[in-house]
Design a protein around this nucleic acid. Structure first.
Length: 617
RNA sequence: GCCCCGGUAGCUCAGCUGGAUAGAGCAGCGGUCUUCUAAACCGCAGGUCGCAGGUUCGAGUCCUGCCCGGGGCGCCA
């Protein structure tokens, strides 16, 4: 990672590193000087906070140490910073010279926008969406898709090769159950629609689950003989349906041609609807990204062999398990009936992604309920050494354990009638709401959108509606559950997608009204006299490091917070610094150039979140 | 029973490897449109950071215990 001349933090870090080393000796060359944007403008632009921690470690006076470091750093920064100051218990406050800020701003004023790319040739695999065939895509898959897509865009922006994979649930017992049910009921699989599939899924669930537990409870609670017999018959029926489904799964897994053909029909039916939703979301994820459970079916025996060969698996009650030193829970990799499980598949997937695809990072965007599972799988992969590429690079396995989407009652989101809300209906509703907001505004003759066609307004409305959903999903800490609230997410006030889109449109509008072309301001002098101009500049200069941070932490909400702050800071600038009505031409061009940078940063940032930024709204 | 995640203003949430007086947005109150998009901006008010200990110059942040909410826990995925 090189340091960009446009990133003040990187420049200050380098200077303070050597200042610390020359104060305390070479042993301290690698300590982080803890450069942070200053909390308050009166403390300057940045602060170095390392002196206090170091003083504690060494056992010296923090303020005194800060002064020593400051004296060493001062000459190094003479060209770009005002004289440094020590404040409080040992903060070193830094104010940059305006000329230096101008140079840094020019440094980011190209396509990069200050984002430093990484040329590591290993791809990054992102496991996202993960629909279950035989089940309609619902809000649960929304987050996985939106988050995965945003991360994919961010890593591509950082210069990495990204392989998106849709790890379809297409090979387990549930799909066998549905297939069994459809065959039993004589359904014609050629004109199967999603409702048939959903119905079949639910019926199959009922058939096989009704209801061994009920029987056990009835026995335990000394229910009457009639009730027992009734439940026993039901349970026997369930057992039979389940046995049949299991048998069908075995046939399927052995490659029975007729069954395979039916299986494909089922998948096609589900995926047609999935692709519709993905198109509405503007997420590029097609058949070429499908790499589901069935893909690994021939690789499962090898997983068992390898774990057995390395002595990492042992038999327990007939099943084959991997045990860990630090937890009671084992990972079952083969059932006592010889069948494989999703843990077997997931281990095969780790091996494939790291070993064959050569990925040095695999990101699983799967909901938080699978935390324990992935912890076990990752640890098992580590035990056997599959978490490295063939060229020896260590592989980072990350599970993005995102929270649930809840309804207003804080229970998993359902319709009033208690059904799961389908993703398609949700997206359609969002687009409808977005469009109606945009139309409402366009009805005003003074609105810039007034003359637009119905179609143009529809395009903007879609961007607003979908953007609102995506932003609501990405702007919170992913680990939290979040309450789905259309009214809040589509509001134009506060930290929402539409607010940012609006801020972007306003900047565009200034430029459009200026009557100038981009080429007119390209080399314009930048004049940073007003505090608002400085604040805007300091924020613009942070863009690159924010993107790097998101790549490191996998926390897209940091980008959201940044963009919101950008819109806010721009508003302050906009209020305090006339652009088109600036007192002279030089200032006008300087401010337009600042506006242009703001516009590009917001558009780029929203783009990384998968959100469109219309030029008008 | 064990494990994991969360608990910050009335509501929804930020708070970056411990740093200066804990920040936003909604909602509430009060201002700002002949002025570059008022879908905006400015101001006021609002806090025992779940509770109790501990670590230290300094804790929302780290450690221990407890409370509340959610999730998970051997042959479903």
């Amino acid at each position: 990672m090189t340091s960009s001349p446009s990133d003040p933090v990187a420049i200050l870090q380098a200077a303070f590193r050597s200042a610390i080393a020359s104060t305390l000796g070479d042993a301290y060359r690698e300590v982080d000087p803890l450069i942070k944007p200053s909390g308050k403008p009166e403390f300057g632009d940045f602060q170095a906070n390392a002196a206090m921690g170091l003083a504690k470690k060494i056992g010296t006076n923090p303020r005194k140490l800060a002064e020593q470091i400051m004296q060493a750093a001062d000459p190094l920064l003479e060209a770009i910073a005002e004289p440094l100051e020590v404040a409080g218990p040992g903060f070193i406050n830094i104010t940059l010279k305006s000329e230096a800020l101008v140079e840094m701003l020019k440094g980011m004023d190209d396509e990069s926008l200050g984002v430093i790319t990484d040329s590591d040739p290993h791809p990054i695999v992102i496991d996202m969406c993960s629909v279950n065939v035989a089940k309609q895509m619902h809000v649960g898959h929304l987050r996985s898709t939106i988050i995965g897509d945003a991360l994919a865009r961010i890593f591509e922006r950082l210069g990495r090769t990204v392989i998106k994979q849709n790890h379809l649930g297409d090979w387990g017992l549930p799909i066998a159950m549905v297939l069994h049910h459809l065959r039993e009921s004589g359904q014609n699989l050629d004109d199967l629609d999603l409702d048939d599939l959903n119905h079949a899924y639910r019926q199959a669930q009922l058939e096989t689950k009704a209801d061994v537990r009920g029987l056990a409870a009835a026995l335990e609670m000394n229910a009457g003989p009639h009730r027992i017999v009734e439940l026993e018959e039901q349970a026997a029926g369930a057992q039979k349906a389940l046995e049949d489904s299991k048998a069908l799964l075995v046939e399927l897994q052995q490659g029975d041609p007729g069954l395979l053909a039916d299986w494909h029909k089922l998948i096609d039916c589900t995926m047609r609807s999935v692709y519709e939703s993905l198109a509405l979301l503007d997420v590029t994820l097609g058949p070429e990204h499908n790499c589901g459970e069935s893909f690994y079916r021939d690789r499962l025996p090898d997983v068992i062999d390898a774990f057995t060969r390395f002595g990492l698996a042992e038999e327990d009650h007939g099943a084959l398990v991997v045990k860990f030193d630090d937890r009671d829970r084992p990972l079952i990799i083969r059932k006592s009936d010889g069948g494989f499980l999703y843990s077997t598949t997931d281990l095969a997937a780790v091996k494939y992604r790291a070993g064959e695809l050569g990925a040095d990072r695999v990101i699983y965007v799967v909901d938080a309920r699978q935390r324990d599972h992935f912890r076990d799988v990752f640890d098992a992969a580590h035990l056997i050494g599959w978490d490295q590429t063939e060229d020896g690079a260590p592989v980072e396995l990350n599970h993005i354990a995102f929270g649930s989407v809840l309804g207003p009652d804080k229970r998993p989101l359902k319709t009033r009638s208690g059904k799961n809300i389908t993703l398609n209906s949700l997206l359609t509703e969002a687009i409808k709401r977005g469009t109606s907001e945009v139309r409402k505004r366009a009805a005003d003759p003074a609105a810039p959108t007034h003359g637009l066609t119905r179609e143009e307004l529809g395009t903007i409305g879609k961007a607003v509606g979908i953007g609102a959903i995506k932003y609501a999903d990405l702007s919170n800490d992913l680990a939290r559950d979040y309450i789905f609230n259309f009214d809040r997410m589509i509001a134009f006030e506060g930290n929402t997608g539409p607010y940012l889109q609006y801020a972007h449109a306003r900047v565009c509008s200034i430029f459009a009204k200026s009557g100038l072309a981009l080429s007119d301001i390209e080399g314009a002098d930048l004049i940073l006299a007003e505090p608002a101009e400085r604040q805007l500049t300091l924020l613009l200069l942070r863009y690159g490091s924010i993107i790097t941070d998101v790549g490191r932490t996998l926390e897209p909400h940091r980008l959201c917070t940044y963009l919101y702050e950008m819109a806010d800071t721009f508003s302050a600038f906009y209020q305090q610094c006339p652009v088109l009505k600036a007192p002279d031409d030089a200032l006008r061009k300087s401010r337009l150039r600042l506006c242009d940078l703001v516009r590009r940063v917001i558009a780029d940032g929203l783009g990384l979140l998968g959100i469109d930024a219309p030029r008008q709204m």
